[in-house]
């Protein structure tokens, strides 16, 4: 076997999966899935690049253009305020798209995973490989966006270096839950529910304005949503307003990702190995 092994991922995957139909779950051969996706996207680089431009367009429009009219928000220029919010939204959207539409297409229509499972690959390799690829892709977008924030002078602190791993955490939390949801989907129509969950979160979770515009109870509701925690974390890091309370945000996203991965792993195995 010449495949690069990822020994660390195996116990993780094993932890996340329950019933074993076929011995170990695997996970160590995940890099070949990344290799496959790189071959696919070599030809679709423009599509790949577009994932980077979308948050940039929003930053230039809402952040810069509208920012001239809003003045300072929360004690900082509006552009500085909006940028970390857009970073969180982009990490969420990328992860959800990859783990819902793409996974559903490969599972139900292209039978891509069925073909993989006829080879020595295991369900764990597929799950770890797909999630890793989405994370890798998201990481590149996030790094590029952060670089632009630095160039535009929107980053106030060295704490911003931690923003990169945090975008990965956001991607993991949403990607795992997205994949878990996908295993329950029956048709493309069910994906309306995904949009139904994402769009209000995108609009209301404080990416564009402080939660102080809301009444108390709406505020409590928004603070229970996962995107709020991602935005809160990233904004604190790029603006240099770090405090211990941020650990709650981290914990929230970690628990969410772990539950999602647990459900996704069990369900995937049941769906693919019948």
């Amino acid at each position: 076997m010449t495949t690069t092994e990822l020994p660390l991922t195996t116990p993780l995957a094993r932890l996340l999966l329950g019933r074993r139909a076929f011995g170990p779950l695997g996970g160590s051969k995940a890099p070949v899935l990344i290799e496959r996706n790189m071959v696919v996207y070599r030809r679709l680089w423009l599509m790949l690049a577009s994932g980077f431009f979308e948050p940039l367009f929003y930053l230039l429009s809402i952040g810069v253009g509208l920012g001239k009219l809003t003045g300072a928000v929360d004690g900082v220029p509006y552009t500085d305020y909006v940028a970390p919010g857009l970073l969180a939204v982009s990490a969420m959207n990328g992860a959800v798209f990859d783990s819902t539409f793409n996974v559903f297409f490969k599972m139900k229509y292209a039978k891509t995973y069925d073909a993989m499972l006829a080879t020595p690959l295991r369900v764990g390799d597929i799950a770890v490989g797909e999630i890793s690829w989405a994370q890798l892709r998201g990481l590149i977008y996030s790094a590029a966006f952060l670089a632009i924030m630095v160039a535009m002078g929107l980053v106030h602190s060295w704490w911003a270096l931690l923003a990169l791993p945090v975008t990965v955490l956001i991607g993991f939390a949403f990607g795992a839950v997205g994949m878990a949801c996908t295993t329950f989907m029956r048709s493309w129509q069910d994906f309306d529910l995904v949009t139904l969950a994402l769009m209000p979160m995108f609009l209301f979770s404080g990416a564009f304005y402080p939660l102080s515009v809301y009444s108390h109870w709406i505020r409590v509701l928004i603070e229970a949503l996962p995107l709020y925690h991602g935005i809160d974390l990233l904004r604190a890091l790029t603006l240099g307003r770090v405090h211990v309370g941020l650990l709650w945000d981290v914990l929230y996203l970690m628990v969410m990702g772990a539950i999602g991965a647990l459900v996704a792993g069990r369900r995937l195995e049941r769906l693919l190995l019948t």
Binding site: T3, K29, V32, T119
Partner: peptide, 24 residues
């Protein structure tokens, strides 16, 4: 398999290349 499960996102040669990689 009974139902074709070729990788539609890959070309003919790449289908064999990547499948071989699955075998290490």
């Amino acid at each position: 398999p009974q139902e074709d499960s070729l990788d539609l996102e890959l070309r003919v040669r790449e289908n064999l290349l990547i499948y071989g990689r699955y075998f290490g």
